[in-house]
């Protein structure tokens, strides 16, 4: 099996050192521009409002959820509203929304739960004007925790939907 990237997707700024780091974990599944699943830093300057770094760090690329829930809190809605606005002003970007669960659950259920969370974020972005064909979703279930402790402090960060920017070079 060779490393494969999703069709037509390409990482932006692949020549940047940060992107090399992103890829250094050896995972074949695409990490996009600053990955939710690995917690890598997006390229660009955080002071540049058109950069993925700004999207990730200034706006916030992720929203978190309550235990076994996929409803969006007020805070999550305001983060997603800002993401929608940014995507509106930066039409060259598309995004994959990654849904994740904490480890308190069976593997299959958590895959389905992560999918619900990603879909909830996607629906909200669409309701704020982002075209549905710019937004894909994928669930990692409990396969890619960001935090490793077995306590709520970690679980609360792992129950997340992360908007990972991508660009479709072939339009």
């Amino acid at each position: 099996m060779s490393m494969t990237l999703p069709k037509k997707l390409m990482m932006i700024g692949a020549i940047l050192a940060v992107s090399a780091c992103t890829n250094a974990n050896g995972w074949g599944d695409d990490d996009g521009v600053g990955s939710g699943q690995t917690g890598a830093t997006a390229p660009g300057l955080v002071t540049d409002q058109t950069s993925p770094a700004y999207f990730q760090q200034a706006i916030g690329d992720r929203v978190v959820f309550a235990v076994d829930q996929s409803t969006l809190s007020d805070e999550a809605q305001s983060i997603l509203a800002a993401q929608a606005q940014w995507l509106g002003s930066n039409p060259d970007y598309t995004a994959t929304i990654e849904g994740h669960a904490d480890e308190q659950g069976t593997r299959e259920y958590n895959l389905a739960l992560g999918a619900r969370r990603a879909a909830a974020a996607r629906e909200y972005l669409i309701s704020r004007g982002v075209a549905g064909n710019r937004l894909k979703t994928v669930s990692y279930g409990k396969e890619r925790p960001l935090e490793v402790c077995s306590e709520e402090a970690c679980y609360s960060k792992n129950r997340r939907a992360v908007t990972v920017l991508t660009t479709d070079l072939t339009g």
């Binding site: 099996m1 050896g26 074949g28 990692y140 396969e143």
Partner: peptide, 10 residues
């Protein structure tokens, strides 16, 4: 049976 380049489950 596979390498570890992609997540495999169940």
């Amino acid at each position: 049976l596979t390498d570890s380049s992609a997540i495999v489950l169940a």
